[in-house]
Computed example of a mutant assay.
Amino acid sequence: MGIKETSSVPATVPPTVPPTGIQYHQAYAHNYHFIMDNEEVCKTTKPFLVLMVPVAPHDVAARDAIRQTWGKDSKVQGEVVFTLFMLGYSGRADAGQVQEKVKQENLQHHDLIQSDFMDTYLNLTIKTMVIMEWLATRCPTAAYGMKVDSDMFLNIDNLVIMLQKPGIPKKEYLTGMLMWNAPVLRSKNSKWYVPVEMYPRNTYPTYTLGMGYIFSNDLPGKFVEVSKSIKPFNIEDAYIGMCMEKLGLAPTSPPNPSQFKAYITKYNRCEFSKVITYILGSAEELVKYWTDLKKPGQPC
Rank of each mutant, 00 (worst) to 15 (best):
P296T: 09
E271C: 01
G88S: 11
T12Q: 13
T20G: 13
P10Q: 04
T69Y: 11
Q99A: 10
K231P: 05
D73S: 12
V55K: 00
M179A: 14
M118P: 11
L112N: 14
I113F: 02
L49C: 09
T44M: 03
K101A: 15
L209T: 15
P166S: 11
F260T: 12
V60E: 10
P296G: 04
T16E: 13
V194H: 05
L286I: 07
E245T: 09
T203Y: 07
A27V: 08
D64A: 02
D218K: 04
D116E: 05
G2F: 09
P140H: 06
S229K: 11
P251S: 01
T277N: 08
G145K: 13
G297E: 04
V53E: 04
L174C: 14
L107C: 02
A93R: 15
R67P: 08
P254C: 01
L154Y: 11
D218T: 03
V53S: 06
L247M: 11
P251V: 00
I279Y: 10
S115W: 05
V275H: 08
E100Y: 14
N217M: 02
T12A: 12
I35P: 00
E100L: 06
N268V: 12
P15E: 10
M132R: 04
G71Q: 12
L174K: 04
A61M: 08
N202P: 03
L159N: 10
H58G: 04
A27G: 15
P257H: 04
A142S: 15
V9M: 14
L159C: 06
L51K: 08
L280S: 08
D64I: 03
A136C: 10
D111C: 10
Q104H: 14
L293S: 05
L163Q: 10
A262P: 00
H58S: 12
Q97P: 01
R201M: 09
V148I: 15
G167D: 13
K75Q: 12
P166W: 01
Y263S: 09
L159P: 10
P232N: 09
S90A: 09
P15F: 01
I113W: 01
L49R: 07
E39D: 09
Y89P: 01
S8F: 09
